[in-house]
Design a protein around this nucleic acid. Sequence first.
DNA 1: AAAAAACATTCCAAATACTGCAAATTCTTA
DNA 2: TAAGAATTTGCAGTATTTGGAATGTTTTTT
Lengths: 251, 251
Amino acid sequence: MLAEERQQVILSMLKTSSVVKLQDICKKVTCSESSVRRDLQLLEEKGLLIRVHGGAKVKHSLQRELDMTGKSLRNVQQKSSIAKFAAEQIQDEDVVYLDAGTSTLAMIQFLHSGQHLTVVTNGVVHASALADRNIRTILVGGELKTTTKAIVGIETVNSLHHYRFNKAFLGTNGVHPRFGYTTPDPDEAAVKKTALDQSEKNYILADESKIDQVSFVKVAELAKAIIITNRLPKTVLDQYSDQTTIQEVSI
Amino acid sequence: MLAEERQQVILSMLKTSSVVKLQDICKKVTCSESSVRRDLQLLEEKGLLIRVHGGAKVKHSLQRELDMTGKSLRNVQQKSSIAKFAAEQIQDEDVVYLDAGTSTLAMIQFLHSGQHLTVVTNGVVHASALADRNIRTILVGGELKTTTKAIVGIETVNSLHHYRFNKAFLGTNGVHPRFGYTTPDPDEAAVKKTALDQSEKNYILADESKIDQVSFVKVAELAKAIIITNRLPKTVLDQYSDQTTIQEVSI
DNA sequence: AAAAAACATTCCAAATACTGCAAATTCTTA
DNA sequence: TAAGAATTTGCAGTATTTGGAATGTTTTTT
């Protein structure tokens, strides 16, 4: 099989799964690890994917952001399966709020225009991705944070009061039994808080690295949302399960 | 087998498989490697395929388009010089409205964070580009048009009423002495109209292809804005100059 | 916290592909 | 039919690609 061919296969694999294992590629293209590694290196240099320990992940436009810096395949897979599970909670005709951030961004690949959704978001990159998938999208107004490309501020909070959601999906930096959901930025916290208030049912996407962490600003009590995360140790789980529902997702 | 014939075969192989191996071609056309190599070389020179180690691959439509730029190069230069001139009208500390669209998008490369601007826009792509250049950006809220990635709708118009601009820069589809500025989409027109009302000084960016054109919905009278365009024939110019200011930009 | 396993990197020799050139073949034309 | 032109072919030397082994790193397990 030609190098060119292999590389096309790799890219097409990434289109449907957002992470690929090196071993899986080897099997699919029937050649040595060395060759696949070289291919990955080349494709990474071209900026078409990002290599991680054990394989490669897609490169999306928010790649700069600190959050998705998952360095290992396992880590990225976790995020991807959490996103998939979250996306599956959405039903036809739902009006959904999608918070800015990479965990929620990963959900978009699992949505499709046939579901007739309306998605409200404060993520510029999210909005763009949703438009690409032909999904009805509403962007809240406000000031753009240059680093995360999230829309925040008082204007945004006001903007959000115009809407009412069936379901809201948010990321967070910290989940803690005593301090609830927390994030470092006060402006973003205010937006998250408002979104939670405007929605019927709330989901927090948090991989295990966020559990038992505390950040600067409190967004809400644990009870305010259902937590979607990976399999946790039982001792940890017990601390949370009396306060809210935890949805464990296997990789 | 004739050379011409071989080349046809190669091209038809590429229609079904996106990459072909040199060896496979040899088998199919029953001739030596050297001949096939020469064929590939020729076809590559003609721009019909791209040679890769071990064979050839199809030329992607995007790459093909880039080759076609010979014709539209002039057009690009026009847009760029109009955009540059427009950007130069902006002064430090200005609060600027930037309408969605390609002509205004081209302005962003000429702005820099040292100017301490505040830019309000309804273009998602624009917002993203501005954030990349570290410029304070405010995005208006509203519904996203999936095709143009512009934010439009009643929400957007309301949103705009919260702001007041020193200068507004807009594109348009038609500029006409009698019918003024016109665009095809009523929603976009409403947004443009509001933006013009909220601004102290207005600029319309219109390359010569827009002059004397009329589209579906009227945005405003000519007098409402200064037109930035390329050098025009004097006869055309006269029709406009009594109604508004025209800024001619040389390419 | 150490040991084990899995993965990554670097280098090497074998295999494969590429280039230009000269010989052989085919096609023209007088 | 034979000379000349054009095309094709085979070849030698050069360059690229490939799979594997040895040597580091990171991640996972104990």
